[in-house]
Write a protein that binds this DNA or RNA. Structure first.
Lengths: 137, 137
DNA sequence: ACAGACACTCTCCTTTTGGTGTGTATAAAT
DNA sequence: ATTTATACACACCAAAAGGAGAGTGTCTGT
């Protein structure tokens, strides 16, 4: 993926993860999506909803450790816009709104799973790498 | 993963991606790692190095579309610190430095692959969701 | 009459992020 | 003597991210 390089001896020996069609607009969209879904809060919200099923706003706020109200609202809105969560408003008083993952959101959760597992699996290796780096530079 | 919820009827029906030990410090480390590796530039650099193998600084700059020199240096340093890339300095003049993925970096690339594939696979669905959201709100 | 619950919104402020442009060391080439 | 190439570092500045806290509407409970 991604063209370029003025240098001739690079190129080929590629084998990108996905068979590409090299549409620059689509590429931009995909990068945009990646930029959004790879957001820390998005990932944590997905994880929380995966584990707990449907949750209300304040419950989410308590569960996603360290998130501010503002960020929670913002994250949820964007996720709703992208079709990752379904927002259900029950018109009662006091207000009752709950959030659940859509199938799309759940599929993203699975895709992320690989990264979580990677992090859990390799954190030791990373800590050692950091120590080495600090020690020798 | 992650405790809490004052609500009793939540809890259980969990089944997190990874068998946890609930060490809060480790959890923080993992979140920190996620926060760093899920960075846009990190992902793009990994992808570029995966496709092209060893590259020099300026080649990377040209290949990773839109990255500034500053961000490239910064990203590479952090990746080096975390053991994702190996930085090799050839003491010649003019300077020659090249970068390659470590096995750890390559394994992260594979983990990310799932997210890339997800994005490529579902971008249509997302576009439709966005259109719907704009239309009805 | 007043407080409380809920799901926000709005404003203010600080921190972080990231771009641009300039400087540097050194030797070879012009 | 000047230019070129390389891999940055550093300083300055604009924009974006994100936290804190107050406000809002409406009904219920005291």
């Amino acid at each position: 993926m991604r063209r370029a390089l003025a240098d001739p001896d690079i190129e080929k020996r590629s084998e990108g993860p996905v068979p590409e069609t090299f549409d620059p607009a689509l590429e931009k969209l995909v990068e945009d999506i990646i930029g959004k879904v790879a957001d820390k809060w998005t990932m944590l919200v997905i994880e929380t909803l995966e584990e707990n099923g449907t949750l209300r706003f304040t419950q989410l706020g308590k569960t996603v450790s360290g998130i501010s109200q503002k960020m929670l609202t913002q994250t949820l809105r964007r996720m709703e816009e992208d079709g990752l969560v379904r927002r259900t408003v029950h018109p009662v008083i006091p207000p009752h709104v709950d959030y659940a993952l859509t199938p799309l959101g759940r599929s993203l959760g699975k895709a992320f799973c690989g990264v979580w597992i990677w992090a859990e699996k390799h954190h030791d290796e990373i800590r050692r790498a950091r120590a080495m780096f600090k020690a020798k530079g």
